[in-house]
Design a protein around this nucleic acid. Structure first.
Length: 572
DNA sequence: CCCAGTCGGATTGAGCGG
DNA sequence: CCGCTCAATCCGACTGGG
């Protein structure tokens, strides 16, 4: 089963249910390991005691059914790699010995010989011992992630002892892919690929070369999967909201880590989603059109590690048609304008010249406009998201209609020094609350005492509004948002809704350093959810000036998102 | 080839204070 | 008349699909 955490019932460790006593990264179901053994909090990363260094390893084996004391003792006595193998053999040879509840049935037998020189002779000095110890630890983690031990050893050898886990997994994946690609290339017509420049980059960047190469090969597949109208709907048809989703969820790298949720425009230039996905643990995006949640389209891709079972919608369910959502337009809506839903709500609205031209064109042809005029009018209406507000009179949507369609409370962005243009801009960039809440609804009940959220690129707080709407208490929210007016909007909402938790505002995402993250984690026990959509300016199809992809001025902030998620996966 | 669709951006011009 | 802000108004890039 690819989704061991799907409904939460099969978690190896149920890491999110209790919170107050939860030591970071160590759930309260195994609460005593850390305190008993070393008497301080696991998250103090400078610690070098067994429990701190091997917190996840301990969890791994406790999850397999070993007792925590047994695990601690074994690590301290044997070192990490030897410990792993001992435990492993124990499981294989004698399932009843400590593993009776959860035999590690999925494990494959690994035949490796411990190099005797490694085992004994190479630990003469404490420095080298520590180095080898560290290597063993990394190796253990990789093996526990079910990477072949031979490939893990090569990766450690090639990337050096200081390499991060993600770097190593990338290396292994790249090596595996290279094998596959090489065999595929033999069957393809010879073509010079411009990624060859990467060949000359330093070794550390090796996997970027592989990544680029892979991206090119996967482009066609990606576009087939992601661009087809069928996948764009995300959920099949309007009345069928729960189809099977085949993508990998709770990827092995992120299992047991904080939840994260990433969003961006679905119609990104070729290869962008593949690239985003390759950074975010290879999790496939979930493409959803918000037209199934409200009366306006909003085609977005979401990458997250949330469970997908038992999702539920925010109530009441908003109207799905323009005429229901905007009942005053019904009276003026001509029968030949067959639109039932609006296109994507963007940051700018139609200029007055467009609505003026439409009015003139219709007034010139009496009561019954000819087909050519009808076509022209409908086309412009679709293009500019115009609605009928009078006889021969179309108009762009008002900001409060944007708010309503996107699921925000009325007047959410109104006043307080915010002008109309700012409102359109902020709303055009925002989440569709019902859609996001649908995804986040699986968190309901998992955080009875409230949730700690790291909200990146918060904007006007779509994530916060969604969580609040779901009845999930916001305990601590760190909101990173560059625009002052947006921070004001969120703070104002926070006060108006009488939030009991703490709102911490951060202006610049670059100020969210590892040290700062650790500080927050220390002060309130860690984040349960990292949520945000990075800027789409350079990705969006409506940008005719600087649509230069993920590397563009604004959209490259995705890498900040990635940096922070990646850091959190290691810190927590 | 044409068309629809897109979390945009640079330019222009009105309005304002000095 | 200058410099500034704000908002309306052009501009016409991309992509996929028919």
């Amino acid at each position: 089963m690819d989704d061991p955490e799907g409904d939460g019932s099969s978690n190896e460790y149920n890491w999110n249910t209790d919170d107050e006593d939860e030591v970071f990264g160590i759930p309260s179901s195994v609460p005593n390991i850390i305190q008993q053994s070393c008497g301080h909090n696991l998250l103090v990363s400078s610690s070098t005691c067994t429990c701190t260094k091997h917190g996840k390893l301990i969890l791994h084996f406790v999850g397999m059914g070993f007792s925590k004391e047994q695990v601690i003792k074994a690590i301290e006595e044997n070192g990490c790699l030897a410990f792993y193998l001992n435990m492993f053999n124990l499981t294989l040879e004698d399932p009843s010995a400590g593993a009776s509840n959860r035999p590690y049935s999925s494990a494959k037998k690994i035949d490796i010989q411990l190099d005797s020189s490694d085992d004994e002779d190479s630990y003469p000095g404490s420095g080298e011992k520590s180095l080898n110890f560290e290597r063993d630890k990394i190796l253990t983690v990789l093996v526990s992630m079910e990477y072949p031990i031979e490939e893990a050893l090569i990766a450690i050898e090639k990337c050096g002892p200081e390499a991060e886990i993600c770097e190593l997994t990338d290396f292994i994946c790249a090596a595996q892919l290279e094998k596959e690609i090489d065999s595929q290339l033999q069957n393809l017509p010879k073509k010079k690929h411009d990624a060859s420049v990467y060949m000359h980059k330093k070794r550390r960047d090796g996997y970027y070369f592989h990544r680029e190469k892979r991206l090119k090969l996967d482009d066609e597949m990606e576009m087939m999967q992601m661009r087809s109208s069928e996948s764009m709907t995300g959920f099949g048809t309007r009345n069928q909201l729960y189809p099977a989703v085949t993508r990998r969820l709770r990827h092995k790298v992120t299992a047991g880590q904080p939840y994260f949720y990433y969003e961006n425009v679905a119609g990104a230039p070729k290869g962008v989603w593949r690239k985003i996905s390759s950074f975010l643990f290879e999790i496939e995006p979930e493409f959803v059109d918000s037209k199934y949640f409200c009366a306006a389209a909003r085609k977005r891709g979401y990458i997250h590690n949330l469970p997908i079972e038992n999702r539920s919608r925010l109530l009441p369910i908003p109207p799905l048609t323009i005429q229901e959502a905007l009942p005053t337009t019904k009276r003026w809506w001509p029968s030949w304008d067959t639109r039932a839903q609006l296109n994507c709500l963007i940051t700018t609205i139609a200029p007055a010249t467009v609505t003026e031209k439409i009015r003139k064109a219709l007034e010139e042809c009496d009561a019954k406009p000819p087909p050519t005029v009808r076509e022209y009018v409908v086309k412009e209406c679709r293009n500019w998201n115009l609605v009928w507000v009078g006889k021969n009179k179309v108009a762009p949507l008002e900001p409060d209609e944007y708010e309503m369609l996107l699921g925000f409370p009325k007047d959410h962005t109104r006043g307080g020094g915010i002008n109309r243009t700012m409102r359109y801009k902020a709303l055009g960039n925002a989440f569709q609350v019902d859609t996001v809440a649908y995804h986040l609804s699986v968190l309901k009940g998992r955080f009875p005492k409230g949730i700690n959220v790291l909200s990146l690129f918060s904007g006007i707080g779509g994530a916060e509004v969604a969580l609040h709407g779901l009845g999930i208490m916001l305990r601590n929210v760190v909101s990173v948002e560059v625009a002052e007016e947006n921070r004001n909007i969120l703070r104002s909402w926070w006060e108006q809704t009488n939030q009991q938790g703490n709102l911490i505002e951060v202006k610049d995402v670059q100020n969210v350093t590892c040290g700062q993250l650790e500080q927050w984690i220390t002060s309130f026990g860690g984040f349960d959810l990292i949520i945000g959509g990075s800027p789409c300016n350079n990705i969006s199809g409506s940008n005719r000036v600087s649509r230069n992809g993920l590397e563009g001025k604004h959209s490259s902030l995705f890498y900040e998102y990635y940096r922070i998620v990646e850091a959190m996966m290691h810190i927590q």
